[in-house]
Design a protein around this nucleic acid. Structure first.
Length: 789
DNA sequence: GTTCTAGAAC
DNA sequence: GTTCTAGAAC
């Protein structure tokens, strides 16, 4: 028996009698209790010492704990790893459980401890403190007063570098249990759990908790202070350990993403308890139902269709990486039956190299039709490597899935489609009568057909890998997009059941965000019936007399070409579509788009056509920042864009490219990005063309920054592709993205506030993340002409 | 979208 | 005391 892992320790085991600690522990060992070695993982300031102290102070269940801290082990000198290993060995031999309190940021740093623990028959756990960089930095910086060898900004630099170098602890390193703590509640639960661990208890194996992706958790500071204020002072020694100062850490190169590398492959285990744990995790103690956001898929075309594994693994990793960037809260799991699966290990390695977030994309060994019952992994959506007839049989995954799905799945599939062409996929809703639904909670199967390199099968490509790779990419794109839209409609359904459901916020679809806005602004709309704010009034003030400032000349709109003129007065505050609420201040672009002639003499207007207006942004967030504003009435934002708007989108894109190129002629050092805000503040679809210097006094706050440097900013090229393939866009961003910590758009380093961020970006010469270097997302003087037409 | 400002953080 | 953020008002 053991306390509930990952959750609260509701039923602490009975306290043991207080005999001599060593003797008692030996006795425990005889009765089945094992000492535990907990390797704490986290940068300076992440709260490792506080964590260990809190357990030491709070442990009432009889398990003897020792904290081995490299900061303090050296008696005022820098401690060494050897000293820590020795102290840990001594404690374990005595039957005491140990916290390894040093940063342990990469695998190499942890290996010796894992080995030691296993040799001495201890359970070896890792607890990864996944605090936002900002919190760690502010704590580390504030400590420098005590120590002095790391001053303010330098401490921030070290924390950043360590975070960039960080490798997520993996079960494959030899840990039996890994816990990720993202916020105060996670930490409190973990502290409670370990505090209540009796001397003969053990904790279930596996991975618990998720890697943090969200914004800074302010509450963490409060908890840490509260947990043990004296120990914070006492134990949060400012000194960095030797290992942290090692030059290789200092040399860490900024990478595309500051996420951990590695795989999170979870072994399929039979223990009921572990399954319960995983299920709990899957059911989502967090903010959303992970199961419904997880797609389990087999490798397409690599089995029967004999597609080259190396090429296939490249495509899987690239497609998954693209997908994860696009959708914030969705999770992908590549599944194969065999532990020795070559495709799994290839994908695992490549994903690690690409530093893909292993909590959102990982490999899993198990039967895709029994993930929940046998593996404890809940995936509501699974993919099938189907055949072109969409028929059962043929062996492999296809046979297994149709088998598990029963006749109900066959019927449901037949209703959706008769055949499938290579590179495409089809979503089938699994009837509730299907065993797959009932036993495994699978709500959707997405049948995918990949390219075939097997001469014995239809559509044989004769080793033409140019074609083959293209088709395989299409297949995965189609699969992933279908998965995203499946989740969206699921969330929409949930939403209808419960509008307040927080889950809705996790994946905001166009209609979700609309609903949200409508709901929350309903009353606001009623009170906002003030007169229309003149367009760009402040511009007029700034420009002074005689300027061509844009402003609204009186109340009469004059023009008769505006289709909605009759209703415009009524729509001023609500927008033209579906009663969406726009504040009066948010209508300036709409006004301009409807009546550009009124403003045609303004310096701010660069171009007017029948379909768009190009305007210098009045509050540019960079040296060059212009907007291409659609003139189509009713097209308020990305959420309204449909396939029929593609020609317009392409024209707007071309106009944006044209202006970017003009600016590049004037200043070849600029780099431009073209894109839309997921959920814009201003009514009327507008494309931003913005130089990536972000050198502007108008860029003032976190929202400004994050709206141009996170997934909130949707590259025009991606929007166009998405509409082409999917018919509408998915805006996966929400307020959380805008509230995220401030990270450099080039090197991804974190910064505590806007002024510090600004001084960093003024000098940062790191290359742009590789994501931006692909597909002409960035436009520079060396970019060849790009066009989406 | 910006401006203003209280109060938190430094 | 000064800097900075975040929320409300517009």
């Amino acid at each position: 028996m053991y306390p509930a892992g990952g959750g609260s320790a509701s039923a602490p085991p009975p306290p043991a009698e207080s005999t001599g600690v060593g003797a008692k522990a030996k006795q425990d060992e005889e009765s089945g209790g094992k000492p535990v070695m907990v390797v704490l993982v986290g940068p300076p300031g992440s709260g490792k010492s506080t964590f260990a102290e809190a357990v030491l102070a709070g442990s009432a269940a009889g398990r003897p704990w020792v904290r081995v801290c490299q900061d303090t082990i050296g008696n005022n000198k820098a401690g060494t790893k050897i000293q820590c290993l020795k102290a840990a060995a001594d404690a374990l031999k005595e039957g005491e459980s140990v916290f390894i309190d040093r940063c342990n940021m990469d695998r190499e740093q942890r290996t010796d401890f894992v080995k030691l623990g296993s040799t001495l028959h201890a359970d070896v756990h890792a607890i990864s403190l996944e605090l936002p960089a900002k919190v760690c930095i502010s704590r580390a910086v504030s400590r420098t007063g005590h120590e002095g060898n790391l001053q303010g900004g330098k401490a921030a630099l070290v924390v950043n570098r360590m975070l960039q170098k960080k490798e997520t602890p993996l079960l494959t390193e030899g840990f039996t249990r890994i816990m990720f703590c993202n916020d105060d509640s996670d930490i409190k639960k973990a502290v409670d759990l370990y505090s209540s661990l009796g001397s003969s208890d053990s904790l279930p194996s596996g991975v618990f908790g998720q890697k943090s992706k969200g914004p800074v958790q302010v509450g963490i500071m409060k908890f840490l202070k509260k947990a043990d204020s004296s120990s914070v002072e006492k134990s949060s020694d400012p000194k960095l350990t030797l290992s942290e100062r090692k030059p290789e850490h200092q040399d860490a190169v900024s990478k595309e993403e500051n996420v951990e590398a590695g795989d999170c492959s979870i072994e399929v285990k039979e223990e009921l308890n572990e399954k319960a744990e995983n299920r709990k995790q899957a059911k989502g103690s967090g903010s959303y139902d992970i199961g419904s956001h997880t797609l389990a898929f087999p490798s397409i075309s690599t089995a029967d269709f004999q597609f080259d594994l190396d090429r296939a693994s490249d495509i899987i990793v690239e497609s998954a990486a693209d997908f994860l960037r696009k959708y914030n809260n969705l999770r992908l799991v590549l599944v194969d039956l065999s532990k020795k699966s070559r495709i799994l290990s290839l994908v695992k390695d490549k994903a690690a190299k690409k530093r893909i977030d292993s909590s959102r994309f990982f490999t899993f060994v198990g039967d895709i039709t029994q993930l929940l019952s046998k593996g404890g992994l809940q995936c509501n959506v699974i993919a099938n490597a189907a055949n072109w007839r969409l028929k059962p049989g043929g062996g492999g995954v296809n046979a297994a899935i149709f088998n598990a799905g029963g006749e109900a799945l066959q019927h449901a599939t037949k209703k959706c489609a008769d055949t499938l062409r290579p590179g495409s996929s089809v979503v089938v809703s699994v009837p509730s009568t299907s065993p797959l639904h009932q036993q495994e909670g699978v709500t959707h199967v997405i049948h995918v057909l990949g390219p075939n390199m097997n001469p014995m099968r239809p559509d044989y490509l004769k080793n033409d890998y140019t074609k083959g790779c293209k088709i395989l990419r299409e297949a995965y794109n189609s699969l992933f997009e279908n998965f995203a839209s499946t989740v969206q409609s699921y969330m929409r359904k949930q939403n209808n059941d419960s509008v307040a459901d927080k889950a809705a916020a996790s994946v905001i679809t166009p209609s979700d965000s609309k609903m949200k806005r409508e709901g929350s602004h309903e009353s606001e709309r009623m009170k906002k019936h003030k007169s229309f704010q003149p367009i760009l009034t402040s511009k007029k003030q700034h420009e002074g007399p005689g300027s061509n400032a844009l402003n609204r000349s009186g109340t009469s709109l004059g023009s008769s070409d505006a289709p909605n003129q009759a209703t415009e007065a009524g729509n001023k505050n609500s927008g033209a579509v579906a009663g969406k609420s726009w504040g009066s201040w948010a209508q300036a672009l709409y006004e301009l788009a409807m009546h550009p002639d009124k403003y045609k003499n303004s310096d701010s207007i660069l171009e007017i056509s029948d379909e768009f207006v190009v305007l210098k942004d009045l509050y540019p967030k960079a040296k060059k920042h212009v907007l291409v504003i659609s003139r189509m009435n009713g097209l308020d934002s990305l959420a309204d864009v449909k396939k029929e708007h593609l020609p317009l989108l392409r024209k707007m894109h071309s106009a944006g490219v044209k202006w970017a190129q003009k600016f590049l002629e004037e200043d070849a050092s600029l780099v431009f990005r073209l894109g839309y805000h997921s959920v814009p503040s201003m009514r009327q679809l507008h494309l931003h063309i913005i130089s990536q210097d972000f050198n502007s006094a108008s860029l003032k706050n976190k929202k400004h920054w994050n709206s141009f440097t996170t997934s909130f900013f949707r590259d025009s090229v991606d929007v166009i592709v998405e509409i082409e393939q999917h018919g509408s866009t998915t805006t996966s961003s929400d307020d959380k993205v805008l509230a995220m910590e401030l990270r450099c758009h080039r090197c991804r380093s974190a910064h505590p506030n806007i002024p510090k961020l600004k001084s960093h970006i003024a000098n940062c010469k790191s290359p742009f993340p590789s994501y931006l270097l692909q597909k002409n997302r960035l436009l520079s003087s060396s970019t060849e002409h790009m066009d989406c037409t």
